[in-house]
Nucleic acid binder design. Structure first.
Length: 426
RNA sequence: GGAGAGGUGGCUGAGUGGUCGAAAGCACUGGUCUUGAAAACCAGCGACGGGCAACCGUCCCAGGGUUCGAAUCCCUGCCUCUCCGCCA
């Protein structure tokens, strides 16, 4: 949520910054809601003040054994007036909430202008695509040859955009997750956390998926939603909390499945496991001191990059432009890994600083020793990295001419020393 | 699933329908004392919103209700704990 003070006092500044996203703030609507709010709040509060005054004197009069008939008469119609004013106020507040909850975060000044991914800014590249002296297969054909990836069976069990993994491929998938968890907990000093995979609407509102993006989520009965990312349960760990200063920064790593409807992406990446309804992800989350969040974003991004570097997978880092920026983010670096079959870089991690945007929605605070007062903390998160896409990247980048796949050295300890997965001759 | 108890400030924990935003303790902050620290003593100390300000309002799990007035009474929901049963 954008700071309400900023919205009220400098709406045109907010409008300018939101324009970076290609979003037009309805200043007129904002002004009219705010005018109504002021009127009804003032009226409600003065009626409440009067009621409180009279009620207190009734109490005193009764204590003194005096008659209270006159006092009672003087508040006769007050209750109804108050009810009406209060109803109006609640309506206005609801309009305000709906309006502000639907506003995305303000992009940071370092976010490049632009409308879509073609305007994203290249930050750096690491490694260079391997020169293959044969025509690379994509992971679907590779996986089929290894008899480890089976989309047809998955379609029969569940539907499209699911996969069944078996044998050494399933093990490789698990090895990737284990490797990432160990890297982040042991080398990068994250605390491992296990959370619910079903969450309530409040948590989703806290991180910003609701109320605007319900169609992206799988809702199950009883008001639960499947998590679209571990960001939701992990960040909400701090919801409603007031953390002590020495608890910051709090850094969590979680390995969870993620579930997404992928509504609106019909026809996109229909082949293979790039875009699935269910996928695993290792997620990094920081809860930080407000002064440290920009540094935290750089460090978290580096931690995600370390995964790709240790796997020796070529990638690049891009700074998302305003139009490509997610709803809650103030700034996002995407890590894009090289896929030989597509001869292009594909997103494998997204690292964002949300500043106090999520913290305000979920009331995640810390106590500032300078002031002794609670203050909003900052949240930062990123994938470290998407496990399914990492599997795709390993399969494709480590494929051999005979259809086998060598195992990256970093993963071999997690594969029982296996150095290669071989094609099963048909 | 059955039976019971309870949800109050950063924490523990009192609270009679009427100066209760709420006792007390802990924690925290400032001061006295001390070479310094601790202890002791004194003082201060909830959050959120509105207003230039004086000040006003809201909040004792959440939502309704009764009342001139609700932390306190009534209803509903959520959550926690204890016991029994069942269970990966």
């Amino acid at each position: 949520m954008i700071d309400p003070q900023l919205l009220r006092k400098t709406p045109q500044v907010v409008a300018e910054r939101l324009a970076t996203r290609g979003l037009k703030l309805d200043l007129q609507l904002l002004a009219s809601i705010e005018a109504d709010r002021k009127q009804w709040q003032t009226q409600t509060e003065s009626l409440q003040a009067e009621r409180n005054r009279v009620s207190k004197s009734i109490g005193k009069a009764k204590a003194n054994g005096e008659s209270v008939d006159d006092l009672l008469a003087s508040v006769a119609g007050l209750g109804d007036q108050l009810d009406q004013a209060n109803q109006q106020l609640q309506q206005v507040q609801q309009r305000w909430d709906e309006f502000t909850l639907a506003l995305p975060n303000l992009p940071d000044a370092s976010v490049p202008p632009g409308s879509d991914e073609t305007d994203n800014q290249l930050v750096r590249e690491w490694g260079s695509p391997r020169e293959l002296d044969f025509e690379p297969l994509d992971h679907v054909d590779l996986g089929a040859g290894l008899t480890g990836l089976d989309f047809e069976t998955a379609a029969g069990i569940a539907g499209s955009r699911f996969v069944v993994m078996t044998g050494q491929v399933a093990r490789l998938h698990r090895a990737l997750a284990q490797f990432m968890l160990d890297l982040h907990t042991l080398d990068h000093e994250y605390e491992e956390i296990y959370t619910p995979y079903l969450v309530n609407a409040k948590s989703l509102q806290g991180t910003g998926q609701l109320p605007k993006f319900e169609e992206d989520l799988f809702a199950v009965s009883d008001d639960y939603y499947l998590i679209p990312t571990a960001e939701v349960p992990v960040t909400n760990w701090a919801a409603g909390q007031i953390l002590a200063a020495d608890q910051l920064p709090k850094r969590f790593v979680a390995h969870t499945p993620c579930f997404r409807r992928e509504a609106g992406s019909y026809g996109k990446d229909t082949r293979g496991m790039i875009r699935q309804h269910q996928f695993d992800k290792v997620e990094l989350v920081w809860l930080s001191h407000p002064n440290d969040s920009w540094d935290a974003l750089e460090r978290l991004t580096d931690h995600a990059e370390q995964v790709l570097q240790k796997l020796d997978l070529p990638y690049r880092v891009v700074n998302l432009c305003g139009g490509d920026l997610g709803f809650s983010a103030a700034k996002t670096y995407d890590l894009e890994v090289w896929l030989p079959s597509q001869k292009t870089y594909r997103e494998i991690s997204s690292c964002s600083n949300f500043l106090d945007f999520q913290a305000r929605r979920m009331q995640a605070r810390w106590r500032d020793p300078e002031t002794g007062k609670p203050a909003l903390l900052h949240t930062i998160n990123g994938s470290g990295v998407a496990v399914g896409r990492a599997l795709v990247a390993v399969l494709e980048n480590y494929q051999q001419a005979d259809g086998s796949v060598t195992i990256p050295a970093a993963l071999q300890p997690y594969m029982g020393g296996v150095e290669s997965i071989d094609r099963v001759s048909a």
